[in-house]
């Protein structure tokens, strides 16, 4: 009888132990998953707005607040002419110009784009997709990729 009870106790401890272990595993899995949550994949995502550089610049120049409400944190696809390409600290920055304004669209590119950017020339018309972060003198995009 006593032996039986001992056995039961042992079994109980065993099962609880496994349950706790599984619990810890699940919690840490979820935690790590959340901690390493990936950035929005701009390349795969479809853009919410497709515009030319001139259109988006004039919207921000006319009413920055309204344009912020419409475009901030959204994925935009902008068509424009490359006016400069620069690289600093591994980040490439492409500037798209528009006729008739000193404003531009400044795009900080994803590091994955560096190879594509090597073959790029000033004056070429391209489509860039990126996340809009706002406006200073220029409309800003980050995590941008070149769309063929």
């Amino acid at each position: 009888m006593k032996k039986n009870k001992n056995n039961q106790m042992r079994r109980f401890l065993y099962i609880t132990g496994i349950a706790i272990l599984i619990g810890i595993l699940v919690v840490s899995f979820v935690f790590i998953k959340m901690y390493n949550k990936p950035h929005t994949d701009v390349f795969k995502a479809s853009p919410e707005y497709v515009l030319t550089a001139g259109e988006i610049i004039s919207e921000f120049e006319n009413d920055e607040q309204q344009a912020n409400e419409k475009y901030l944190d959204k994925i935009l696809q902008i068509e424009g002419v490359v006016s400069s390409i620069s690289t600093y600290n591994g980040n490439s920055v492409i500037t798209l110009e528009a006729p008739g304004t000193i404003g531009a669209v400044i795009c900080t590119m994803e590091p994955s784009q560096n190879k594509k950017i090597l073959g790029l020339e000033k004056g070429k018309e391209i489509n860039i997709r990126g996340i809009c972060t706002g406006f200073l003198m220029d409309v800003m995009l980050v995590r941008a990729v070149i769309v063929d």
Binding site: M34, Y35, N36, K37, P38, H39, T40, L72, D73, T108, T133, G134, F135, L136, M140, V142, R143
Partner: peptide
Amino acid sequence: MLMKSFTFEKAL
């Protein structure tokens, strides 16, 4: 500068 233009390694 725009605060949203700061990019981090981790999305979180």
